[in-house]
Design a protein around this nucleic acid. Structure first.
Lengths: 345, 345
DNA sequence: CCTACTAATGCTCAAAATGAGCATAGTTGG
DNA sequence: CCAACTATGCTCATTTTGAGCATTAGTAGG
């Protein structure tokens, strides 16, 4: 008995045959990859520039269709076309989220086939030369400048984002008892206003808030914000095609969360590295500066690394010991990761 | 310009038009829900029994097709058909994972339409009476008896699972240098052999290991293990339809992880509760016993709850204060949760 | 060669969080 | 009224953090 037949016999499941509902079938599956690396202490993501169009050039993530006939698994399909398109052999890859909201196409009333996109996160070492035609590594902070706290609180928050958001929140009626959380509270939490703490993992929540407030270009493009008419609309970060910036936001949030409880940071490192290089990489991902001595204590104490015996000269000071990732740690501890908290320099 | 047209113009993306590959289109999307509650200190999940077939009755999760025409979002579609099928208004729901492996249909060589299923986790309060025809709340430990550590290490581990797994690992060549992690190491980690610590979040990993080892009925059914012929094949947990047990395993792992950093446990509680009832609920989810006084200190100290002023009598001892969830905590702390570690009773 | 400078590395210390257990307080059932 | 039983309060040793001082070993410039 096939899946199909089984489904029919399970009449409890659904009071309408899916195939009789228009559009229930015929959905296309697209795979999107946020391929992340760290180059020169800058977190970068592989971007495909769609400049075949000329004027309408926009940045986007690599994507490809999923063909269930050719590939048994999503991940298999993903690896195959990423290799074909970019020459990159993906190491670590994990599924992020499946995006299916109507409106993905940016065209209201679009009647084309519905596309469901499955976002993936891949981590790799930075390969400077890439044999992809229109692709390039670009810092992810180009798309999310407000997420870069490595040189302290980004100016864009105070200069642009906060005033605009306060304006947006104040346009909501005050006594919103029915709502679970008011605009004001959401803004306060996400953007750490009024003394609240900045949570570097809430990347997606912040992006979606800016989208709702009509402060990112995608919101205007998608027609969410057609009513408003601010003369000088600030351009908050570089926009991306479709909902790729949302996928990237999900990816950043996921990496930031994950390095704290899984040793995925080493996917981004060369085989040998100094502890300070490791720290710089973690900081590139997370944002804030870490306390150097404590970082070292943490990483060594958790048994994540071992010395190679070599040292790296020309550090600008005393030579630094080289370390390598201890893969065995995966067998020793249930959840090894870089459990860091921001500290003084 | 529609998504479709854009995709064509982005010829970099794909060197083959997806529509020319057979099967690239026409995929069906199914939504699966693991709807979880806690009733009488037992974690339960809403099960649909497919007994229209008669003999081939099997437990399954509620599922329904996703129609992009009727519903704008997956979650909207999910809530709609869950309400129709079960009369249940879902509160908390989150996407788990999208499963698309071929072989879902359990029929090798099946040429029916490919089905991609998006798993969801929903948390709700236990509602004893449910107006669903063939549905029922069943303890999730029926499907995963080895996950129930509330009365110490489950016997089934020592009596059945460990010997079978050791047999399975020993059938692998020893010097497996090429492999990232050997069978033996994976088994040791997942099932806490030889003194390794039990990680209650690795529910999915354990299930998949048992599947690979051919120790769960689904593996036999799917033809993964056709070669083997053990006379007395142990039945490890109650099997489920399709890959629903995998989805449920994902759900359990997710809840177990999530209650530690988000206050989702309160989705499972009535409005007012005693701290010990809260503790029992956490224990039902996580497995091991917690230290009562420290649990209380943790929950109160984190500001997760506040007293209602009422007390609950007839506890069998001193009356217990009633508490309620402090929703404001969401606005105060970035990641409030029940950060528990197992302790003595 | 000597000195200044820069990082890497080693070590200390107070504060906070954690794990465990003892002690006391109210009810319920005889 | 006593015994049993659970709720709740509190203490204490141990670990884990957060922060900073001190020392070491190179490089660059005279």
């Amino acid at each position: 008995m096939s899946y199909h037949q089984l489904r029919e016999s399970a009449h409890v499941q659904s009071d309408a045959d899916p195939r009789s509902e228009p559009g229930a079938s015929g959905v296309e599956i697209g795979l999107n990859a946020a391929i992340v690396a760290v180059a020169d202490n800058e977190p970068v993501v592989l971007i495909i520039r769609n400049d075949a169009d000329g004027a309408a050039a926009t940045d986007g993530l690599p994507f490809g269709p999923f063909s269930p006939v050719q590939h048994r698994t999503f991940e298999g399909g993903l690896r195959a076309w990423v290799l074909r398109q970019t020459g990159l052999e993906l190491g670590y890859a994990e599924q992020l989220y499946t995006f299916g909201d109507r409106g993905r196409s940016a065209e209201p009333g679009d009647v084309g086939p519905h596309v469901v996109s499955i976002g993936y996160l891949a981590l790799t070492q930075a390969k400077p030369a890439l044999d992809v035609q229109h692709g390039a590594w670009r810092s992810w902070y180009q798309y999310f400048p407000w997420e870069d706290w490595r040189r302290g609180r980004p100016d864009i928050l105070e200069s642009t984002i906060e005033p605009r958001l306060r304006e947006w929140t104040s346009s909501q009626r005050v006594a919103a008892n029915g709502l679970p959380v008011s605009r004001q509270e959401r803004v306060r939490m996400c953007f750490a206003l009024d003394g609240a703490a900045w949570d570097e993992e809430k990347v997606l929540e912040r992006y979606e808030l800016l989208y709702e407030a009509g402060l990112v270009e995608e919101a205007v493009r998608d027609g969410r914000d057609a009513a408003r008419q601010w003369e000088e609309r600030p351009r908050l970060g570089v926009p991306m095609r479709f909902d790729h910036r949302r996928i990237l936001a999900t990816a950043i949030g996921r990496v930031r969360a994950k390095i704290k409880y899984r040793p995925v940071i080493f996917e981004l490192m060369p085989d040998d590295f100094t502890l300070f290089e490791l720290q710089r990489t973690v900081e590139a991902i997370l944002g804030p500066h870490l306390h150097k001595q404590n970082f070292r204590r943490l990483v060594e104490g958790a048994g994540l690394v071992e010395t190679t015996g070599e040292v790296k000269m020309r550090t600008g000071g005393r030579p630094a010991k080289l370390y390598r990732f201890r893969r065995e740690v995966l067998l020793e501890r249930p959840a090894p990761g870089v459990r860091v908290k921001p500290g003084k320099v």
